[in-house]
Design a protein around this nucleic acid. Structure first.
Lengths: 214, 214
DNA sequence: CACCAAACCGCATTTTCATGCGATTGTAGG
DNA sequence: CCTACAATCGCATGAAAATGCGGTTTGGTG
């Protein structure tokens, strides 16, 4: 470690706060700037301690960690924020991620891993409890298509749909595929019926949501 | 552990393969079904060993782990696939995730964590090396908006845009916002100008690409 | 062969969009 | 007070899209 990592901790539960504080203080390479039970003096705290890493609970009296997150990132985007919480619902997880959190640990994480996570975020990693990571990954995977029909759209219909998804007009699509605009109409009509929609926009949204198949 | 976890390992490097094999075999609760240097007999392997978890390298002679992934998931989606590789480029990571991988570890992961990861994926978690996780998270975060204008769209304009993004027609948007259809037109006109587009589709695509701001 | 689906084309009608021009409020700032 | 701007509404026109109905050709399959 060249320079110690300055950490700022927010956790309303006294025992947990003191426990984590103790650990952080006992760790070489980490300097605990402060440990607060609430995030209401956030801006002042950030200015006073200029932390490298903020470790924060989500559920706290007053402002929540989730609300604090954008403020922290607005103050200094280089601050790495690590959420440490009991909540593992999609809503909160994604709000945290969108808000720029760099890590998301559940409170059942062993202390040693919490410490490790602080080093990880500081080095540019994003430590995550594996159950949280699973939820994140699922948002990338194809929506399963559990009860979906194979090959709902014919090859040509997919070509047309791709055109729509590029924002092309009927005419442009016709040109690109070297077919007449009326043929494009016909195909689109069929696509709409198969996808159970009735406008370009709906078709595009549907196509994006569940990747080409109804 | 009620039932031991059956693991199938693919790794072309002999030392690594034997090292990991040894660890897996020595771990209570885990049964190593087989350890192969290549994935070319994949289907036969899967049929013969019916693994719960497949631990696989990406770079292997013959078929790569990335190519094997969809085959595994097609054979039995319940098989958890854990990628263990030296590659940490976005392309491979996302290909793995889209393909349904449940975890992604870099090869510098300590052996103990690899073992732990096997348990994690089996329990429905998604262990990831933190640097990999960071790359994943970044795809959820707003595209930085480094040189982007603040608050390009007014609140009302964003309301209208959200309506478009839900696939609503002007009339529906007007109804939902309790304003006239002509007002909707006006707002949309302004949105188009600000986003530098000239159709619903383009506006939606642009809005989705860089989250509301041009 | 007869049949069917997919791809191709055309035309007509209605609806929705895109856009130009104009106008009234209310609120924030200089 | 004047100015700027967001938000609201109206009207009109031409272009694009949605929809209904018709057709031909081609490549498979029973």
């Amino acid at each position: 470690m060249d320079k110690p990592i300055t950490v700022l901790l927010y956790e309303d539960n006294r025992d947990l706060r003191e426990g984590i504080s103790f650990l952080l203080q006992a760790t070489p390479g980490i300097v605990l700037a402060a440990a607060c039970p609430h995030v209401n003096n956030l801006k002042a705290d950030l200015a006073a301690y200029t932390p490298d890493v903020v470790l924060t609970d989500i559920g706290m009296p007053g402002m929540t960690g989730l609300e604090a997150l954008p403020i922290i990132k607005a103050t200094n985007p280089n601050i790495q924020v690590l959420m440490l919480t009991v909540f593992d619902d999609d809503e909160r997880i994604f709000q945290a991620i969108r808000g720029g959190a760099s890590g998301y640990l559940l409170k059942n994480t062993p202390p040693a891993e919490i410490i490790q996570a602080v080093f990880d975020v500081f080095r540019g990693g994003s430590p995550m409890t594996s159950s949280v990571a699973r939820k994140v990954l699922q948002h990338f995977q194809q929506p399963a298509k559990v009860s979906s029909s194979e090959q709902l759209l014919s090859a040509r219909e997919q070509d047309i749909l791709k055109g729509l998804m590029k924002g092309y007009s009927y005419k442009l699509i016709a040109d690109e595929l070297h077919i007449s605009i009326d043929t494009v109409r016909t195909h689109i009509r069929n696509v709409y019926e198969k996808l159970q929609v009735n406008s370009k926009t709906e078709a595009i949204l549907k196509a994006m949501k569940d990747g080409f198949l109804g």
